[in-house]
C-alpha cells in the first residue's frame, strides 16, 4: 500500500512534486479556472452526485468489472491537478464507490493517476492515447501500476465514452452536462 495521500492545497499536486502534469500544454493559463470555480463548493453536495454516477455506470456496464479482474479490488486515487479535490475510486464489483476528498485529507490508496481535468477527460473519452500522455509527461501514475493499467484497459473497451454515458443518464442534468462536455471538448481541441 502507498503512503497516505496528503495535499498542501497549493498549485503543486502533492508534497515534493516539482512538476504539474499538463503544465506544458497549450491553454495552461486557463488551467487553474476549475480550481477557483469549484473551491467554494462543499463536498457534501458532490458526494451523492459521484455516488450516483458510479452506481449508474456499474449497473449499465458490469463487463467493466470482468475486465478489471483481481485489480478491481484496488483503490485508485484520481488526481485532477487543477481541481480543488481528488477522487477515490474503489472499482469493487459489488460495492463500487467514487468519493471526493479535499486535498488536505489523508486518503489511503493503492495507486494514483494525475493529470489536468481536461487530460483526464480526454483519457476517458478515448480521444487520446494514455501511453502517449505518459511519454509527454502530461499524465503521471504512481503506486500500483497494474491497477492503473487494468483500469485504463477496462475503460478503453467501452464503446460509448464514459463521460457521454454518464451525461446521457443524468436525468434532468443530462442537457447541461452534455452542453458542458461539448464546450470542454471544443476548448480542448482548439488548444491542442
Amino acid at each position: 500500500m502507498q503512503p497516505a495521500f496528503r495535499h498542501a492545497g497549493s498549485a503543486r499536486p502533492y508534497p515534493g512534486a516539482a512538476t504539474v502534469p499538463g503544465s506544458s500544454q497549450p491553454g495552461r493559463r486557463y488551467q487553474d479556472l476549475p480550481r477557483r470555480a469549484l473551491e467554494p463548493v462543499p463536498l457534501f453536495l458532490l458526494r451523492p452526485l459521484f455516488a450516483a454516477i458510479v452506481a449508474g455506470v456499474a449497473g449499465r456496464h458490469p463487463e467493466l468489472f470482468g475486465r478489471l479482474g483481481p485489480e478491481g479490488g484496488k483503490r485508485i486515487l484520481i488526481d485532477p491537478v487543477n481541481l480543488p479535490f481528488v477522487l477515490l475510486l474503489r472499482p469493487y464489483r459489488y460495492r463500487p464507490s467514487l468519493t471526493p476528498h479535499r486535498r488536505s485529507e489523508a486518503v489511503p490508496h493503492d495507486a494514483r493517476i494525475c493529470g489536468t481535468f481536461l487530460t483526464l477527460l480526454e483519457l476517458i473519452d478515448g480521444q487520446v492515447d494514455s501511453d502517449a500522455l505518459f511519454f509527454s509527461r502530461d499524465l503521471r501514475v504512481d503506486g500500483d501500476t497494474a491497477a492503473v493499467v487494468a483500469l485504463r484497459n477496462a475503460l478503453d473497451d467501452m464503446e460509448v465514452p464514459l463521460a457521454d454515458d454518464i451525461a446521457g443518464h443524468a436525468g434532468p442534468l443530462s442537457r447541461p452536462m452534455r452542453a458542458a462536455l461539448g464546450r470542454l471538448r471544443t476548448f480542448r481541441s482548439s488548444h491542442r
Binding site: 515534493g16 516539482a18 503521471r140 501500476t145 497494474a146
Partner: peptide, 10 residues
C-alpha cells in the same frame, strides 16, 4: 505492470 513503479523526485 505489477513490478513497475514510477515516482517523481525533487
Amino acid at each position: 505492470a505489477g513490478d513497475v513503479h514510477y515516482s517523481e523526485d525533487a
